[in-house]
């Protein structure tokens, strides 16, 4: 049942490649509104792309949500990618450059961690994956 996900304004369901592009656009737009520079916007869009593509490739469907955050007079953008897919058995391995259970470069998760300021991943086999990342605006 998906009926009860009373959607927050900034959510994008992720089921296919078209949704990846849509999520990027939402994120980029929000990042521009918050006042991120163009290179930072590109980093954010790329991170969203990596997270969204992971959902499409490994979990089939999931959700990406966006929120503007404020802390210690700093502004940022928080992005949460959630799915109910098979989950990750070995998070440590998944966070290693070049590790992939699919036929990819294996840069998605570690690369995303590199380009964002905060990175949190939670998963257990059979319980899906939740990745939360934050990018702070440089002062």
């Amino acid at each position: 049942m998906t009926g009860l996900d009373l959607a927050a304004p900034q959510m994008q369901r992720i089921e296919r490649d078209g949704d990846v592009v849509a999520a990027r656009q939402i994120g980029r737009h929000l990042a521009a509104e918050i006042g991120f520079s163009r290179p930072e916007q590109a980093l954010i869009a790329t991170a969203i792309s990596e997270l969204a593509r992971n959902i499409v490739s490994y979990a089939e469907r999931g959700m990406i949500s966006f929120a503007a955050v404020d802390a210690e007079r700093r502004q940022g953008l928080r992005i949460t990618a959630e799915d109910r897919g098979p989950g990750i058995a070995d998070i440590h391995a998944a966070m290693t450059d070049g590790f992939s259970t699919g036929n990819s470069l294996g840069l998605g998760l570690p690369g995303t961690q590199r380009i964002m300021d905060e990175f949190d991943i939670r998963s257990a086999p059979g319980e899906g994956v939740t990745v939360t990342v934050v990018k702070w605006k440089s002062r």
């Binding site: 163009r38 980093l43 790329t46 380009i115």
Partner: peptide, 14 residues
């Protein structure tokens, strides 16, 4: 490849 995207890809590790 735009300059911004190129930078982002390098940072990601490509």
């Amino acid at each position: 490849l735009s300059a911004e995207v190129a930078q982002a890809l390098v940072k990601i590790g490509v």
